Amino acid sequence: MEEFERAVDVGMFSLLRPTVNFANKMTAGPGQTWGPRFITDCQLIYVVSGVATLTLGLEIISLHAGECVFYGANSPHKLVASETEPFTFMSIHFDWNTDSPNPSHPLHGIKNCFDTDLNTPNSIYKLNVDDQGEMIFPQHFLMPNMENLFAQIVREYRFEEPGYPLILRGLFIQLLTFIVRHELSGSYLIGEKRKIAPALEAVRKQPDINWSLTELADLCGYHPTYFSSIFKETIGYSPKQYLILERIRKAKQLLLEARKVEEVAIALGYTSIHYFCRNFKTITGLTPTEYKLQSLEL
C-alpha cells in the first residue's frame, strides 16, 4: 500500500514532452560514491562497463554492463562504484513533461539525505500507453543495444549545437519508446502483468485466432474468472476487447499494404465482413475503405 501511495501518474505516453536536463558519460574512481541523496527530476543510468551497487529505497541492486536503472524525484538512493572493476556509465537527468525543451541543470535539485532515509520506498511511475493500457515504467532492466542512443544524447548535450534542445527531446522520446516497447514485449514484465504475459503474447502473435476466455486463461494457468479479473485490472480492457484492438492494429498495417478489405478481414479471423467493418470504425472512426483512401491521399 505504501508503494502504491508513492505512485506517480505521468499521463498519456503519446502526449509527453520530455526535457533532458543533463547528460554525461564518465568512469568512476574505485569506490566512488554518490549519495545517499535524492533529486528533484528523474534519472536514467546506462552501464557501459564495470560494476556498481545501487541502494534504491528498500532494494539493493547490482549493476553490470548493458543494464539500465531508473529512479524518480525524491526517491532516496546511493550509488557506489566497484573498488576493483572500473565503472563506466552514462547518465541522463530529465523531466517527463515540460513546455520548454531547454535543459534545466539538476545540480540545484540534488539534496543529501541520511542512510536511514534509504529505508523509504522509492516512487514508481505509471504511463498510459495508448491501446496497451497502463504500465509501470521499469526500474531495473537489461538493454545492451541502447549504448549508441545514450551516446548520441550525451554528445548533443555536450556540444550544444544550434537546435540541440529539440534534438535532445527527439532522441530522448526515441529512447523512452524503445524502453516502453521492450517492457511491453514481455521480457521484463512485473507484478500482475507477468501473470498474463502468455495470453498477451498469444494474442499479439496470432490475432487471427478467435481466442476464448478459457483458452487464454489456460495459457496462464488460471481459472477464467480470476484471469478475466486480473486482465481487466492490469490492461484496462477485457480479453475480448484486447483481442479486437490487436486485430484492428494489425488490420491497419495490412490495409496500408493495399490488401482488400475482405482479404484483411479473413486474414484476421473474421467470418463476417460487416462485423469487421463495425469494429474497425468503432476504434478508428473510419471504415476500412475510408482508412485506405485517406492514407493514399496523404
Rank of each mutant, 00 (worst) to 15 (best):
N119I: 09
Q253W: 11
I230M: 11
C42K: 01
A7L: 06
G66W: 09
Q253R: 08
R169P: 10
V10Y: 03
Q174Y: 03
N97I: 07
G66Q: 05
R204T: 05
I92C: 01
H93A: 05
L200P: 03
E160W: 06
E59A: 10
G285H: 12
H93E: 05
A81G: 10
A23I: 02
L293A: 05
I167W: 11
I110N: 09
A251K: 06
E147W: 00
E3A: 07
T88W: 04
V20N: 02
G186V: 00
G170Q: 15
C42R: 04
H182I: 04
P106G: 08
Y222E: 14
I266S: 09
R249F: 04
P144A: 14
R181A: 00
S100D: 15
S229F: 10
L254I: 03
E5K: 15
L79R: 04
A199G: 01
Q294G: 11
S212V: 02
R194L: 13
A265W: 01
R249K: 15
S187H: 14
D131G: 01
T282D: 15
N24C: 13
T289G: 07
M146N: 02
L15T: 10
Y242V: 02
N102Q: 15
L268H: 00
Q132F: 15
N119E: 12
H140Q: 05
E2D: 13
A151Y: 02
N210W: 06
D117A: 13
L255N: 09
W34D: 11
M146E: 03
A197Q: 09
M1L: 13
N145S: 14
G109S: 09
N112Q: 11
E192Q: 06
G50H: 04
L176E: 06
F4I: 12
Y242M: 03
E134T: 14
